[in-house]
Amino acid sequence: MTTVITAILILFGLAVVFGIILGYASIRFRVEGNPIVDQIDALLPQTQCGQCGYPGCRPYAEAISNGDAINKCPPGGQSTIEALADLLDVEAIPLDAEHGEEQAKTVAFIREDECIGCTKCIQACPVDAILGAAKQMHTVISSECTGCDLCVEPCPVDCIDMIPVETTIANWKWPAPAESRNLIATDRGRGELQQQEAH
């Protein structure tokens, strides 16, 4: 009988001790609520273009954290999908074509002599990158433009173009070396071909 009581007491004692330890640990080592929405938002390209169907990047980030698909962001493209898949530990899926296709980076340009100064594009721009006032010609601050093309539709005179960002010495990137290791038989001699071209 005593053995049973002893055992119960010991177990009870252990339970109390571990309970205290666990309780202490939960306070001492508490992890701040993981701001997953912030992390997702940080990966999105912040064009605020709304192509995903949400009014901006943050709402989409919130939607993703609530289980929406990660492939609805055409400006971010595949690399964003991969980064999101990495963060959320899910499968990287191809871009949903329904929301648009990945395109080269563009920047809005207002053909200024056609602008009538209606300010509609200014109201549409999510990042305040268009400068101008009523009846005054507008212009785009190209360094601030995210290329979301939200200003194109509202323009009553269609004077806004999305022009692809030009490659200059400043933003030129080294290309990856041509893959030759995964040469397949039909490509045989590609290396030599390149050499010939070079001649």
Binding site: G56, P126, T146
Partner: peptide, 30 residues
């Protein structure tokens, strides 16, 4: 060339990240 490629990719990525953060700030400010 691989290293140069990787370096410029990283730099571009950083620049884009900076730009995205900037855009977010502007968006939030707006």
């Amino acid at each position: 060339q691989y290293y140069r490629f990787a370096k410029s990719e990283i730099r571009t990525e950083e620049a884009e990240q900076r730009k995205a953060d900037h855009a977010r700030q502007r968006f939030e400010a707006r």
